[in-house]
Amino acid sequence: MKSIEDLIRNHPFLQDLDKTSIALMAGCAKNVAFDQDTYIIHEGQSADQFFLIRNGAVALESYAPGRDPVVFCTLKSCDFLGVSWLAPPYRWQYDARALEPVRAIGFDADCLRKKCDANTAMGYALMKRFVPSLMQRLQAARLQMMDIYGAPPTIGSAQDRAR
């Protein structure tokens, strides 16, 4: 059976992280699992954890009253879940739901923040991994916002087909 340190070391997001940092992170980590369709985090709640997904898929959702929830991103194994733990006010900004059974490494955010403050080399190493992923997600959000595949056609409707 793999130790939590092994799982952290082998996760692609933390590839090449030094031994000291892995050991420090392991002190804040535990194995977690979520059944299909359970919510892992909820918007507005305290962002007291972050997750490295090992298996399964996670949907990030937003909702507005009177509308169905919208999935704006899905995450797979190798991805991380959760950014809000990094900066005040440490509150989740969206919901995350397990699309299929999910196994992950869960980190206690408060524990990890304290270790990052005390060990700035580890904090910097973590930031170097978060920032490129965040940039990619921002670029993706920009493209999605541009709606590059075009506005919904108002043509070819049922009315046209009946002609």
């Binding site: 169905d68 919208v70 999935v71 704006f72 899905t74 699309l99 299929e100």
Partner: peptide, 9 residues
């Protein structure tokens, strides 16, 4: 929407 099981992104 919520019921989609495929990739989003």
């Amino acid at each position: 929407s919520h019921d989609w099981r495929g990739n989003v992104g």
